[in-house]
Amino acid sequence: MSGSSFSQMLELASGAVLVCAILTLWRSDLHAITSILSLQGVSLGVVAGALAAHTHDGALAATAAVVLVVKGSVIPMLIRQVVRRVPGGRETSPLINVPASLVGASFLIVLAYLASSKITALSSAAATRLAPIGVATVLVGFLVLVTRRKTVSQIIGLLLIDNGVALVAFLLTAGVPLVVELGVSLDVLLVVAVLRVLATSMGTVSGAFDLDKMQELHD
């Protein structure tokens, strides 16, 4: 892959990861959000794939394949199964409304850009310059996690954070060593599986798909 088309590919795919994160804030239809999440996983896989093709790194290519499969299809499939049980399939009452959270997101993006200045100063590589995008995705994930009250939305926020971290990892270090990366992917997959089981049993035990209904434990 030539230099300029490589960096273009990288920019596009990492931009897509962040746009997907913004779109999850924008949409309230949980089915649509799941599809967006799947798209984000694919974009992440493309980032890894582009880096692998650029550096001719076999291990990274394997990582890219794992990311594509796990984050692009398996995890969204698991989430879709939870979404199907949510009555209405919508995020009905976020703590702050959509326009406000979108404006908040734009502040977070600027914040991420400022916070990452130390990182981007260390290397002039095309990939390193893009690292703030990953940090911004992490922050947007936080926003989703804090402001959304459906159990599914919380899983989605968690995955946004995770995808953001993965993006930073790919961009900065061309992926952590393969064994670590495999462990990380496995962990994420298991966490989602665990959360799926929990969300389902919470739905059957107490009919709660809303965090506001979880008020039993407090001081």
Binding site: E11, G15, L18, V19, I22, W26, V98, P99, L102, V103, A105, S106, I109, V110, Y113, T120, R129, L130, P132, I133, A136
Partner: peptide, 21 residues
């Protein structure tokens, strides 16, 4: 307003991405 703030956020995103890249 949601659609338009969405547009605004995308625009901010474009600026930041521009600064980044």
């Amino acid at each position: 307003p949601e659609l338009l703030t969405g547009g605004f956020v995308l625009a901010v995103l474009a600026v930041v991405t521009g600064l980044v890249t």
